[in-house]
Write a protein that binds this DNA or RNA. Structure first.
Length: 474
RNA sequence: GGCGACAUACCCAAGUUGGUAAGGGACGGCUCUGCAAAAGCCAUAUUCCCCGGUUCGAGUCCGGGUGUCGCCUCCA
């Protein structure tokens, strides 16, 4: 235990744009980690999921290095408009329209769907999931604090944060505020400055919103960024050790979170900011959840892929680089996982202590790869090289289990069962295999090869082993 | 219009402080096998988008160019 602490964790901190050594302040017993979660108006797509995988690699790495982690992830179940003005549709209400459900049902449905994806991908559940709608009082409280300190002003449609009053506003995202002003694509409305943003929005007088709450400013709903600040600070305190999210959040969402949080408390909001880069689709670009055109995990599953295959694909690239998704790449992850299991499955149950110098060296190499800003691709390379080495099975087995604490590929279990997609029933397949075995025994290879071909046409692959014939479907 | 990222073999992809290109997949050869598969072995970028420069030495630093993409509107 003390041994692993010797390795130094180093992460890229968006705030400083450089790699820094990660340590915990002396009086802090557990890592205070907050990650921006999904807005549950639709399914999470595989690009979203890549981010949660990155956060999972981070969480598992911290624990691998003996840190206790207090990990909070929010569920945004309150709709935000598509712009500061009321010109856009509320995401949740749009989801309700699309599905014919109430906004609350929509939130519940997609929250459950999200949990299922997380579970399938073997992502460790956060210590706490928190919902925006369960923390309305905390959000109102935070807005009131800002109001009391003079950081807000009201317009006819809401309470706004006065970003010019926070002189470090542009620092985090290295914004060029003057040019932002010129290039703004969105109508300012009554806002005083481009970077000002809504803390609380008033419900329109003429229509009833599906989600609205009473507040000191009248009926309305929270602004887009306040929930994260309110929940993060409510559950983890004024300062977080790590705050994660997608890179798209840097400019707007996280900049605003910092502004409102630090103005309210006067303390640093987050010590480390870590951002996951996007998944790209072929030549086109990123997947867009709001456009409705995206790939979900379920689509992958329906096509016969296993969640661990996607997880392996995510592991092969670095979280701060684009990952170019293609089915060709997924297929290679699929074969890669199969090949990995061919090496690890025979080791199951053979684990001994990791004690030899060479075993400790492999472990050290793996650890240093992960400590180097989560170099999962390198760590995977070490796993492969270790498996091909002349280390004995007991230590190999133990190392596989050890590495998998971070990789999370479920290598402690045998190759996952593939969905049986053949039109043939299992009994028919086994009957044909029996016939083939008979033919083989009679050395009637013409017949045995005919059966092999027949099954191959059905997508069934046969493999003769010392233990008999086994099969798997494509 | 502003800001920024990336460019490594057929595909995915790693490359600390510059020192002579991980790993995975596919493909090819050999051994083994009735066949096939598995397994094992071997091979596989004189080269890192292009052009200059710094250096004994650059994928790695500097300058210029080209290309792709992202953000500036909710978005991981």
């Amino acid at each position: 235990m003390s041994k692993s602490k010797q390795a130094i964790l180093r992460f890229y901190n968006t705030a400083s744009r450089s790699i820094e050594e990660f340590t915990l302040p002396k009086d802090v017993p557990a890592v205070r980690m907050y990650c921006c979660g999904p807005t549950v108006y639709h399914y999470a797509h595989i690009g979203n999921l890549r981010s949660y995988l990155f956060e999972d690699f981070l969480r598992r790495t911290l624990e691998y290095f003996d840190y206790e982690v207090n990990h909070v992830v929010n569920i945004t179940d309150v709709g935000h408009l598509t712009s500061d003005q009321d010109e856009g549709e509320d995401k949740m209400e749009k989801g309700a329209e699309r599905t014919g459900k109430t906004v609350w049902e929509v939130a519940e449905y997609y929250t459950q769907a999200f949990f299922k994806d997380i579970d399938l991908l073997n992502i460790v559940a956060p210590t706490l999931w928190c919902k925006a709608t369960d923390h309305i009082p905390e959000q109102i409280d935070l807005v009131q604090k800002l109001e009391a300190k003079g950081y807000t002003y009201n317009t006819s449609d809401g309470v706004y944060f006065d970003s010019l009053k926070f002189d470090r506003y542009a620092d985090f995202a290295r914004l060029d505020v003057e040019n932002l002003q010129k290039g703004a694509r969105i109508d300012m409305g009554e806002k005083k400055f481009v970077t000002d943003f809504a803390l609380w929005k008033f419900s329109p007088a003429d229509s009833q919103r599906a989600m609205e709450w009473p507040s000191p400013w009248g009926k309305g709903f929270p602004g887009w960024h306040i929930e994260c600040s309110a929940m993060a600070m409510h559950h983890l305190g004024p300062t977080l050790d790590i705050h994660c999210g997608g890179t798209d959040h840097i400019r707007i969402h996280h900049t605003n979170e910092i502004a409102q949080s630090e103005c309210a408390t006067g303390q640093t909001f987050a010590r480390f900011w870590m951002h996951g880069e996007f998944l790209r689709m072929g030549e086109s670009s990123k997947m867009s959840k709001s456009s409705g055109d995206f790939l979900t995990l379920k689509v992958l599953l329906d096509q016969g892929y296993h969640p661990m295959e996607y997880r392996l694909l995510a592991l092969t690239s670095h979280y701060r680089n684009y990952l170019n998704f293609s089915f060709e790449a997924l297929d290679s992850a699929k074969d890669g996982l199969r090949n990995l299991h061919r090496r690890t499955d025979p080791l199951i149950g053979k684990a001994t202590a990791i004690s030899s110098d060479s075993a400790l060296k492999w472990q050290h190499d793996f650890k240093s790869a992960m400590s180097d800003d989560l170099n999962t691709a390198k760590a995977l390379g070490i796993l492969n090289s270790m498996l091909r080495s002349d280390l004995d099975d007991g230590e190999k087995s133990a190392l596989v289990l050890d590495f998998d604490k971070v990789l999370g590929l479920q290598l402690d279990k045998t190759m996952p069962e593939k969905a049986k997609q053949s039109s043939l029933a299992t009994e028919e397949i086994e009957a044909l295999i029996a016939q083939r075995d008979q033919a083989k025994a009679e050395r009637n290879f013409i017949e045995s090869d005919r059966i092999r071909d027949e099954l191959a046409n059905q997508g069934i692959k046969l493999q003769d082993t010392p233990q008999g014939t086994i099969w798997e479907s494509e």
